[in-house]
Nucleic acid binder design. Structure first.
Lengths: 335, 335
DNA sequence: CTGAAAGCGCTTACAG
DNA sequence: CTGAAAGCGCTTACAG
């Protein structure tokens, strides 16, 4: 059994003042409440002695705010998102906010559920990496005027703040990198997924190739998240049979690249001699390769910070216009 | 501005019953409160129509429970811990609990701070991967009778539930694996850290070697977390100068192994021809190596589940005796 | 079978 | 400069 909580009342009794005075002092509003310095000191002293800890429930109930934000990630075990979680927590802390992190595993059902869980915890706002079929859930949040910022992914028709990289541009650059190294038959492995950040990536790839007349639709392989291993294996095998030979591959995500490169090695493809490779996002494993793998480097830290900043903005002034930030990624080999 | 919240009172008014009735129905206590079926149906109907969402603050304030547990990790960007977070969230959900995840980055100061943050959120209990200097903070929690379960690490003199693998045994086995492959000069890279799980690992290594008269203290290299890159690089370089030549290395953690292997490759050491390697915990990068790396495989999923089970036990029956579980890790190459 | 009422701990407008 | 009091939304013992 927890020992009985110490409440403001206990402090008030001990010092011999009213609850109001204690509350004012504890919240650093002595000025405003014009409390005498000595009284304030006594209160603080007593609070420390009694080991007082505020009850956030009572406070939240009264104030209608929780000083907590909900972070909904699509896959917490992906290092890209794990780092995002890490930074967001850091920055939120600077605002005096804590973060409840939850995970959807790319399931739309779970996203709806997580939103409800977090709502019932009275979070003041959301930072969400939405799932493919999550548009309706996000729309509901907006309708309810809940502060929300989307991160990494967005829905083009939804008036909601979002922080993303310019995926089109990043993919265009990544593809150009392959073109510049003399590749002519460049494949793309990408999720079979309607989210705009994904279609933007495909578009960047396509336009870079079209521009040089190298675009071949049959070299675009779509991967389904739930059957990722098999799909990638099948895709790679089929690409290796193509004529003329595939000499470059652009992997459109972190996870796809990890599995894809593994499969290439398994098929005894030499990188980069046989096939050159470019990836979206870094994978830790790249460090261990005997060859260098260029990748699109998203500014994770800045994205995290901005998403917190914008959310705080929205929480403060409740009528905020959606703010959108598109950041530019850099290529790992040029920095 | 958020649209005004729908409260129990609104439902009560709409249906024409009292708050009590609504509350009973909403909590599935119609039986207990012997509410008429029709009334219950009406209430549920109205709740749905009004889009009612319970206010957890009011509930928590009233009940003195939050149905939330606090998870404090030492390093959320380490995939070992990221997976733990993932599973704990899953299992907690089965109990109807949500999880607030926070991160200490191995800093004891931050751990104390996080405990306070979570307390102020009225979590019902803690699952903690403690930092080296966190013993006092944990002791305080115990003194306050707060339900707490330590995970992955523990303090031998603290009467507190903990779930760990038998680190001694796992390291003993790992070292034996090297011995069985004819290694005679086996080095250890391990954190310079007094936590029992670390010293147990060193002990397992040492005793396996002592038993065969191969123990050489100079082959044990201590790494400091904050200067990990330099320390490992220095350690590896110095090991490569040893005579007789080092022919095996045991890396005592996930992160150490990742950086250590990177350094070995950089020094053009061939694995396993020149030096055989065994690691504690899997690193994703291992999949990409042209060689197999045996590693100690902790039962992450079971550890996560047990830690939730035990915490729930403690939360329910508040006087619970500390429960300790020591699980056995397996070697990756034997399963 | 259902309602009226108390109270969880806090903050804040108001009165003095 | 400080206190008394209301009220946030819920649950639950009690009365009927």
């Amino acid at each position: 059994m927890k020992t009985k909580r110490v409440s403001i009342k206990d402090i008030a009794q001990k010092v011999g003042v009213s609850n109001a005075t204690v509350s004012l002092v504890l919240n650093g509003k002595e000025e405003e409440g014009r409390i005498r310095k000595e009284v304030a000191a006594k209160v603080l002293q007593a609070a420390k002695e009694l080991n007082y800890e505020p009850n956030n429930f009572a406070r939240g109930l009264r104030m209608g705010r929780s000083n907590t934000i909900g972070l909904i990630l699509a896959d917490i075990s992906n290092s890209f998102f794990a780092h995002i979680a890490f930074y967001i927590q850091e920055y939120a802390d600077e605002y005096g906010y804590s973060v409840i992190i939850t995970n959807t595993n790319e399931s739309g059902d779970k996203m709806g559920k997580m939103i409800n869980v977090l709502k019932s915890h009275q979070v003041d706002g959301f930072i969400i990496v939405p799932t493919e079929d999550g548009e309706e859930d996000i729309r509901e949040l907006i309708d309810q005027k809940t502060p929300v910022v989307l991160l990494d992914r967005y829905f083009p028709h939804l008036p909601v703040s979002h922080i993303v990289v310019n995926n089109y541009h990043a993919s265009f650059e990544a593809t150009n990198l392959l073109l510049d190294s003399e590749c002519q038959n460049i494949a793309l492995l990408i999720y079979n997924n309607k989210l705009a950040h994904m279609t933007d990536r495909e578009k960047g790839y396509r336009e870079a190739l079209v521009k040089r007349n190298y675009y071949k639709p049959e070299l675009v392989k779509k991967i389904t998240y739930n059957t990722i291993e098999e799909d990638i294996s099948t895709a790679i095998k089929s690409l290796l049979l193509e004529q003329p030979k595939v000499d470059g591959i652009f992997f459109a995500t972190n996870t796809i690249s990890a599995i894809g490169i593994k499969e290439l090695l398994k098929q005894h493809v030499r990188i980069p001699e046989d096939i050159k490779v470019v990836c979206f996002d870094k994978n830790e494993a790249f460090d261990f390769m005997p060859f260098q793998i260029p990748y699109v480097q998203q500014p994770i830290q800045e994205m995290s910070r901005k998403s917190v900043d914008i959310l705080m903005e929205q929480i403060k002034q409740s009528s905020a216009i959606p703010t959108t930030m598109e950041m530019f990624a850099s290529m790992s080999n040029k920095s």
